[in-house]
Design a protein around this nucleic acid. Structure first.
Lengths: 216, 216
DNA sequence: TGATAATTTGACCGGTTGGTAAAACATTAC
DNA sequence: GTAATGTTTTACCAACCGGTCAAATTATCA
């Protein structure tokens, strides 16, 4: 992969730092709402407030922008799962995982949609990450959950599908935001919807995983 | 809106019937994987095995194809929710709603992704449907759930967020299929994953909504 | 069979897209 | 200040895109 001209200077300058930041911010905005193929360099350039060739001085291709964005975001995106702690109490770990994921859906919806777009379209750019680092991390946490169930701390359940359920329910509020707001209507769709969602989901998962009479 | 040339013939022919079907099938394939803006008429034409002008003989624009698809699919997509019956027992209604939604995710993943793409990108073509027919239907079913909770048949919960949770967890298996398969790995990702998911989700929602000691 | 209606195709058009080249311009270091 | 380095712009290109047109081809039916 050929380097962009900006990366071939003798030293890394302050301007490079700033402009690359600016471009990635704009690219996030555009890629998140239109997907990779639906986005154009011109759009990103306009949002970033610079000319297209100028933008291409910092990132050689549209793919390079997308790649850089994915790399940067993927890591922080998995932080909440990493914090999932085998030593903590199951209920409080699951509860706070839900909270954290829901906060991310509220505060970083574009990042969520960036991934959603990518995965929906078959993950052409991040298949390796899915089957590599992501799978490894999930395998590890699934083992924690399985141990909790075995120790009788939570109901027996498939840990992978539990994780999928937490991902999908929380990210739904970022990815399908238009639908959520459309269905809730203008009155009910204020920012309070995240609190309502948190309350509901905590109830659902906590009592859904509680050990009950007659369960093995 | 001007009619396509095929619709201006004296009678509707067998060929029109067949080709329109063929085109919509191809359009579903393409729109579902690339979204509206990311799809090209040429792609659809190629999948349909016909030339671009030929395709445009049946649908005047790319928008018209998309519109026709959305209209056709939206209706059937909401069928499971319509069947949600106030007279049935809450547990069995919720259980069978989950089953049906999961079956649709398994059998019609492209339809699910078509909507996911559309909503993810801000629902530019179906905003009216979201705030109209969809909202009305959800409002109605939310009332049913609320009544169940009030009658003490299920735990008190926000009915809208319950519906969102069922949507998101089930559709996840269609929309994020690549990720699900990537994380589960080749061994665990056989078709059995839908049965595993069904088991997990039924357990989660049924026992998550059960009335328990100490709940008001 | 032949005339008429319906379908299909190849050639084309203007606008957009991702990307390039080179020169003009700004910044920094001495 | 000025020369070297780094940045931005203008002009451009080839490929692609959505869509049109007219002519060629095929199906239908009296």
């Amino acid at each position: 992969m050929v380097l962009p001209r900006a990366a071939r200077t003798q030293r890394r300058t302050r301007i490079q730092e700033e402009k690359e930041e600016l471009i990635l911010e704009a690219a996030l905005e555009v890629f998140a709402t239109h997907g990779f193929r639906g986005s154009t360099i011109d759009q990103i350039a306009e949002v970033a407030g610079m000319s297209k060739p100028n933008l291409l001085y910092y990132f050689r291709t549209k793919e390079a922008m997308h790649r850089a964005l994915i790399d940067r975001v993927l890591d922080s995106w998995l932080d909440p799962l990493r914090e999932f702690d085998a030593e903590g109490s199951p209920v409080s770990e699951i509860r706070s995982y839900i909270r954290r994921k829901l906060e991310m859906a509220r505060d970083f919806p574009r990042e969520s949609r960036l991934f959603a777009n990518e995965i929906l379209q078959g993950a052409p750019h991040i298949e390796d990450e899915l089957k590599g680092p992501l799978k490894t991390l999930v395998d590890e946490k699934a083992e924690v959950i399985r141990a909790w169930a075995k120790a009788g701390k939570i109901a027996k359940c498939d840990p992978y599908h539990l994780i999928f359920a937490i991902w999908s329910t929380t990210q739904h509020y970022a990815d399908f935001d238009v639908q959520v707001r459309g269905v809730l209507g203008d009155e009910r769709a204020g920012e309070g919807r995240f609190e309502d969602a948190a309350r509901f989901l905590e109830q659902l998962f906590v009592s859904g995983l509680e050990i009950r009479d007659g369960s093995a």
